[in-house]
Simulated assay, not measured.
Amino acid sequence: MNHSALFVTVALSLSTATILSILSLPFAGWIVFSKSRWALMGESLLTMTLVLPPAVLGYFLLVLFRPDRWPGAFLSGIFGHSLSFTFSGLLLASLIYSLPFAVQPVAQAFRQVPPGTIEMARILGACPLTTFWRVVVPVSLQGVATGWILGFAHTVGEFGVVMMVGGNIPGETRTLSLKAYDDLLSPNGSDVWGSVAPLLLFSFLSLFALNLVKRAGAPAPKGGPHGVAIP
């Protein structure tokens, strides 16, 4: 197994999922609770990466990251280097690519918050911001956890975007999915399982964790006199 590819994959996936779990809260709050006519268009833009081919998105990001034009010049000034073919650029591209996978579960959880709960907080004098952070978010933690897991799993399996933006540089931007691709194209392909096996393991663990979160948030069945669930 190529441990550098494993390290890059884990670091990229953990960073992406964690940052997205924070960014998803204001984005989902704006989508669900905003009365602006731009909310629908904003939601459409946020979810475009679900239907846009990854290679096309990677190409657009490469163009945006060019240091000789805005916003590439602005981002290069912040990071101190060009973002193309670097881990920083790969992380930013992953955040954009996996954003809807983190936002949608949170938005769905926000929509399931009883309106009466929000109204009661407002009657008690809580401002909209306080209501959001102290009422809406705490009762939506299952959606936040689901978004984190999906963001992590989606980043682990990225290929087209990381290939275009990262450039498949060993020890810097080569992930397990890129190494598996290289191994499959190699003459012998003997080391392909060293890359594929961790990807299979990450996929299984992500689905297992996702099912655990769903079970933990599912309502308990009503028990009858003999412990039989009552519909």
Rank of each mutant, 00 (worst) to 15 (best):
S195F: 07
L129W: 15
A107W: 06
L40I: 02
V136G: 01
V8G: 08
A209H: 07
F85G: 03
T131N: 09
V162N: 06
T86Y: 05
S36R: 12
S94G: 11
K35A: 12
D183I: 00
L207K: 03
L124I: 00
A109N: 04
G116H: 07
F202R: 01
M41T: 01
P231C: 06
G223C: 13
I19R: 09
A180I: 02
V137P: 09
G227K: 13
A220G: 11
N188H: 13
I78R: 09
R37W: 12
I123D: 11
V192K: 00
L212D: 05
G125P: 10
S206N: 03
E158W: 02
W193Y: 14
L184H: 08
P198T: 01
I123A: 13
V161Q: 04
W193T: 00
F152V: 03
W133R: 09
F27L: 15
G29I: 06
F27K: 04
M164H: 15
F87P: 04
L199A: 04
T155Y: 01
E158F: 13
D191H: 15
V56T: 14
A153R: 02
F60C: 10
M1V: 10
S36L: 02
G217S: 08
S84T: 14
L61E: 03
I31K: 00
H3K: 01
M48T: 05
D68V: 00
